[in-house]
Amino acid sequence: MHAVADIATHRHDATHIVWDWNGTLLDDNHANIAAVNRICAEFGRDPVDLEYWRSVFRRPLLSCYEELLGRCFIDGEWQRLNNAYERCYDTLLPSCELAEGATEALRAWPEAGRSQSLLSMASHDGLVPLVDERGLTHHFTRIDGRRFDATHDSKAEHLAAHLQAQEIDPATAVLIGDIDDDAHAAHAVGAHAILVTTGMMARWRLEATGYPVADTVTEAVARLGAGVG
C-alpha cells in the first residue's frame, strides 16, 4: 500500500515520536468494548466481543456504527449514541491502566536524546487533565486532543497541525498508534508510522497498511533504536 521499506525493518533516523493515547499508551480495551455494548443495548442490537469489534472498527466512525447497528441514523440518534458511549466509557476510565511498558518507553526515548509528543482523537479538554493526573505531562513537548472537527473523520489534519505547531519536519517524525487511520494520517503528512496490536484493530488489518507492526510499545520504540529496560 505504501512505500515503507525504509522503516519496515528498523529506522534509526527518526528524532520525534508522536504517540497515540487510547489503545496505545492507555490500555482501555475493556472500557471501549463495554461502551460499544452499551450502544448495542441502547439501539436493540446483540452484544459483540472484542475480537469482532477489532475486526470491524474503523474511521469514519459514523459509517462504522451504522454497519454495527445495521441501519442509518435519523435525527438526534448520532448524538444519542455518543452520549451513551461517553457515559459508559467515563465510568470505566478510572480502571484503565497504562499499557504494559508504556512508562519505560516514555522514559527511554528522551534518554536517547530525542523528543516526543501526544496526539489523540479524544477531546482535548478531557485528555489534558487525564494525562496530567497520571503524571505523564512532562514527557511530552506538546499534548493535543481533538481541538477541531476535521473535514474527514481522520487524524491526518490533526497530525499536520500538531507537527506544524512544533515546527517539526514530518520526515523526522514517527506516529505510534493502534489503528490503520494512524498509518493513513502519517502517510498523508509525510511522516512514518509503527502500529501496535494492543488496541482496537486486529493485527491482519494493521499489517494490510504496509507499515511495521509491533506487539507492544516497548517493541515499537526498540525498532527505532532506543533500548527500553
Rank of each mutant, 00 (worst) to 15 (best):
residue 64 C to P: 15
residue 129 P to G: 02
residue 60 P to E: 06
residue 220 A to P: 12
residue 36 V to M: 05
residue 185 A to G: 09
residue 117 S to K: 07
residue 155 K to H: 09
residue 14 A to T: 00
residue 39 I to S: 02
residue 210 G to R: 03
residue 115 S to K: 02
residue 26 L to A: 01
residue 11 R to Q: 01
residue 145 G to R: 04
residue 208 A to C: 11
residue 175 L to V: 13
residue 87 R to E: 11
residue 76 G to W: 08
residue 17 I to A: 07
residue 211 Y to T: 03
residue 134 R to Y: 08
residue 226 A to H: 02
residue 133 E to K: 01
residue 186 A to H: 04
residue 76 G to I: 03
residue 112 A to N: 05
residue 54 R to D: 05
residue 86 E to I: 14
residue 141 T to R: 00
residue 174 V to H: 11
residue 167 E to A: 10
residue 172 T to W: 06
residue 141 T to M: 03
residue 127 L to K: 11
residue 201 M to P: 00
residue 224 L to H: 00
residue 174 V to N: 02
residue 153 D to V: 07
residue 152 H to L: 12
residue 93 L to W: 07
residue 29 N to K: 13
residue 37 N to P: 10
residue 43 F to W: 09
residue 38 R to D: 05
residue 108 A to H: 11
residue 198 T to D: 12
residue 109 W to Y: 12
residue 134 R to N: 04
residue 94 P to N: 08
residue 6 D to E: 13
residue 161 A to P: 04
residue 24 T to M: 02
residue 7 I to E: 03
residue 117 S to C: 11
residue 146 R to N: 06
residue 163 L to D: 02
residue 171 A to T: 14
residue 178 D to V: 08
residue 5 A to N: 10
residue 40 C to D: 01
residue 122 A to H: 08
residue 130 L to D: 12
residue 20 D to L: 10
residue 208 A to P: 12
residue 30 H to M: 03
residue 119 L to K: 02
residue 18 V to E: 00
residue 136 L to W: 00
residue 23 G to A: 07
residue 23 G to M: 05
residue 10 H to Y: 11
residue 122 A to S: 15
residue 173 A to E: 04
residue 189 V to T: 08
residue 105 A to P: 14
residue 5 A to E: 12
residue 77 E to L: 09
residue 59 R to F: 15
residue 92 L to A: 10
residue 196 V to P: 03
residue 74 I to E: 06
residue 142 R to Y: 06
residue 18 V to T: 07
residue 105 A to S: 15
residue 81 L to E: 01
residue 166 Q to P: 00
residue 65 Y to R: 09
residue 48 V to Q: 08
residue 136 L to K: 01
residue 174 V to S: 08
residue 131 V to C: 04
residue 31 A to G: 15
residue 49 D to R: 12
residue 159 L to W: 13
residue 189 V to I: 07
residue 209 T to H: 02
residue 58 R to W: 14
residue 126 G to T: 09
residue 222 A to M: 05
residue 61 L to V: 11
residue 53 W to D: 08
residue 173 A to S: 11
residue 32 N to I: 14
residue 90 D to V: 13
residue 4 V to L: 15
residue 200 M to V: 14
residue 18 V to N: 02
residue 109 W to E: 02
residue 100 E to D: 15
residue 223 R to Y: 00
residue 137 T to A: 13
residue 118 L to P: 10
residue 33 I to D: 09
residue 121 M to T: 07
residue 216 T to N: 04
residue 4 V to M: 09
residue 39 I to V: 14
residue 191 A to M: 03
residue 81 L to F: 04
residue 181 D to G: 15
residue 3 A to T: 11
residue 145 G to A: 04
residue 66 E to C: 13
residue 64 C to K: 05
residue 30 H to K: 12
residue 87 R to P: 03
residue 86 E to M: 09
residue 111 E to Y: 00
residue 41 A to I: 06
residue 103 T to L: 04
residue 99 A to N: 07
residue 138 H to E: 04
residue 225 G to Q: 05
residue 112 A to W: 01
residue 151 T to W: 02
residue 40 C to L: 01
residue 162 H to C: 10
residue 35 A to D: 03
residue 182 D to T: 11
residue 130 L to W: 09
residue 71 R to Q: 13
residue 103 T to K: 00
residue 18 V to M: 02
residue 186 A to F: 13
residue 72 C to T: 14
residue 72 C to E: 14
residue 177 G to L: 06
residue 19 W to R: 01
residue 138 H to V: 01
